[in-house]
């Protein structure tokens, strides 16, 4: 397996998200939850204790009244390519980077729930299971067989639909191929987006729409200055939207973007 992945050039999966096409419908969020067997919220859960591997934030330009403009920004694990802040901090190797795909993976079965990785992540893309997972009676029949539900007390996050990657890989191996067919591996959020705002693909393959999107002049990445080389690229024609890539500024008499 290892020898095999050395033969083929490593993929670097990433996304390119067109913020100007996102209307904040939330399909990606529920599709993600369906795909990854994320339970519905318990009664006490809030937007700070929920499980949303991909979360669409409503941001605005900070102006008041008629000048105020909003945009929707889906934020998921940015799959940092370099010095991913969460990987090195995990005390028991529950976070890893797959060298063959560049995907930052999380093994909830290995996690003890110390939440150090959550404190480390500047994108707040990691989520903790504050409650025991619970589905209404009968609804557990609708769980995706390719993904194990997680238990209470562990951290989880986007893994670019590892179940789908695995299925695609299995199919490729069954067909005697070394590389998976890009059409077989599309994360649930990408598939669900009605407006086609999200593109997913191998950033190393210049022909993919994702790689092309990443190279657009109005493409940006969140907090690029941290040097973590995130693999989620955003595009927007609006200047104020592109400013969300930089550090926050408090609202003391200054114009700023906030959510």
């Amino acid at each position: 397996m290892i020898a095999e992945s050395k033969k083929t050039p490593a993929a670097r999966y990433g996304m390119s998200i067109d913020v100007d096409r996102c209307n904040g419908c939330g399909s990606c969020m529920v599709a993600c939850a369906v795909e990854n067997n994320i339970p519905p919220a318990t009664a006490g859960a809030t937007d700070r204790t929920g499980l949303t591997w991909i979360r669409v934030f409503r941001i605005d330009n900070g102006a008041e009244g008629a000048e105020r403009r909003s945009a929707f920004v889906p934020v998921l694990c940015q799959h940092c390519g370099k010095d991913a802040p969460c990987v090195s901090v995990c005390p028991q190797q529950a976070v890893d980077v797959d060298p063959a795909t560049g995907i930052v993976g999380q093994m909830p079965e290995r996690c003890l729930g110390c939440r150090y990785c959550m404190a480390a992540c500047p994108y707040h893309a990691r989520y903790f299971n504050w409650w025991d997972p619970a589905w209404p009676a009968g609804m557990e029949k609708t769980l995706n067989p390719d993904v194990s539900p997680r238990m209470r007390g562990v951290v989880e996050k986007c893994n670019f639909c590892h179940g789908r990657w695995h299925a695609a890989k299995t199919k490729a191996v069954a067909n005697g191929k070394t590389e998976i067919d890009p059409a077989d591996y599309i994360p649930a959020c990408v598939e669900a987006c009605p407006s086609g705002a999200i593109h997913f693909g191998n950033l190393n393959d210049a022909a993919t729409e994702t790689a092309q999107g990443a190279r657009l002049p109005n493409s940006f990445r969140m907090l690029e200055s941290l040097g973590t080389d995130p693999k989620i690229y955003y595009q927007s024609k609006k200047n104020w939207v592109r400013e969300i890539s930089s550090a926050p500024r408090p609202a003391v008499g200054k114009e700023k973007a906030r959510g």
Binding site: T142, A188, E191
Partner: peptide, 23 residues
């Protein structure tokens, strides 16, 4: 059914999760 997807483009969030409705 364990997941729903659109045949022509994505579905709205209500449609995407409709297979939960019976439960």
């Amino acid at each position: 059914p364990v997941s729903l997807a659109g045949v022509r483009g994505g579905l709205c969030p209500f449609g995407l999760t409709a297979h939960h409705l019976p439960y």
